[in-house]
């Protein structure tokens, strides 16, 4: 399992990186922590002609706070983030984003761009109604999480664009964040999270799913039993070698109920 040859660039500024992407379009692939891309290269599921290493772009690192708003640079690693004081829900979710030897390299932006249906960051982004900041040589744009997540392994990032930061506001406060995983740090088999009356199920289907019907029931003060039954009906689950669709719906619904209780 060795990667095919590729050309390697290590730009020193965001402007330079964007110029390279502009010139090489689809042939170039950004490299963040490499914890998902390097296996894809090794298995030759991805064979880009050029790798653009984002590791030395100061503009993409670190976090900025403004009141209850937090902007997290795309190249911030999960481990760097874990060393900072964070809203409870982020502190609770981060230990699940792979093992600590993965979190030392894996980045917040890489997780969001990769858009694995079982990944925590895409689910957090939808739950917290985050905004994603994208940059191209032609300028910047902000996307809502719901518009950023297009499908499994597919985000709205264009080949000539880079994800610069994720912006969260009002992420503090009570929350529930639960998942079932084989070993701590493995990808979730099923997950659910609740924050300020919003509910998301993840690792259940193609994409992190906001459970709007369950949210409506919460607003009407529905009973826990009703919530669980509704969640089981609302979760759009798919089965694979790791878990069946039925397992994901049933366990997902139980996690939804517990997440709501934890957030109360």
């Amino acid at each position: 399992m060795k990667s095919a040859p590729f050309e390697y660039r290590r730009p020193a500024s965001l402007a330079e990186a964007l110029q390279i992407l502009d010139q090489h379009g689809d042939d170039a692939r950004p490299l963040a922590g490499g914890q998902s891309l390097i296996p894809l290269l090794a298995m030759r599921l991805a064979q880009p002609a050029m790798i653009v290493d984002l590791g030395r772009l100061p503009e993409l690192r670190g976090i900025r706070r403004d009141g209850s708003e937090i902007a997290i640079g795309a190249m911030t690693t999960q481990a760097q983030l874990q060393r900072l004081p964070l809203p409870g829900i982020l502190a609770a979710a981060l230990p699940h984003v792979g093992h600590f030897q993965i979190r030392s390299r894996g980045t917040v932006g890489g997780s969001l761009a990769h858009m694995d249906p079982a990944a925590e960051w895409p689910a957090l982004a939808v739950l917290l109604d985050a905004e994603l900041e994208l940059a191209a040589t032609s300028g910047r744009r902000l996307l809502r999480a719901a518009d950023f997540a297009l499908g499994p392994m597919t985000s709205a990032i264009e080949p000539n664009e880079l994800l610069v930061s994720i912006r969260l506001s009002g992420a503090e406060g009570p929350f529930g964040f639960l998942e079932v995983e084989r070993r701590p740090g493995d990808f979730a088999l099923v997950g659910a999270a609740c924050h300020r009356g919003r509910l998301v199920a993840f690792a259940t289907g193609a994409i992190a799913q906001r459970l709007t019907r369950c949210e409506a029931l919460l607003r009407e003060d529905g009973s826990p039993g009703d919530l669980r039954a509704l969640a089981e009906a609302e979760i759009e689950a798919t089965g694979d070698v790791h878990a069946s669709a039925g397992y994901r719906r049933r366990v997902g619904a139980a996690l939804v109920q517990r997440a709501v209780e934890a957030a109360a």
Binding site: M1, Y8, R10, L31, G34, Q35, I38, P39, A42, M43, I51, D53, G55, A79, H99, F100, Q101, I102, S104, R105
Partner: peptide, 29 residues
């Protein structure tokens, strides 16, 4: 495994544990 799962290749990179199978040598410049 050469894809990050087994941990056998773990090294310290600037003091942090990292998978050497998921790190390009040039990233360790």
């Amino acid at each position: 495994c050469e894809h990050g799962v087994c941990g056998a290749c773990t090294v310290l990179l600037d003091g942090e544990a990292a998978r050497s199978c998921l790190t390009l040598a040039v990233q360790a410049e």
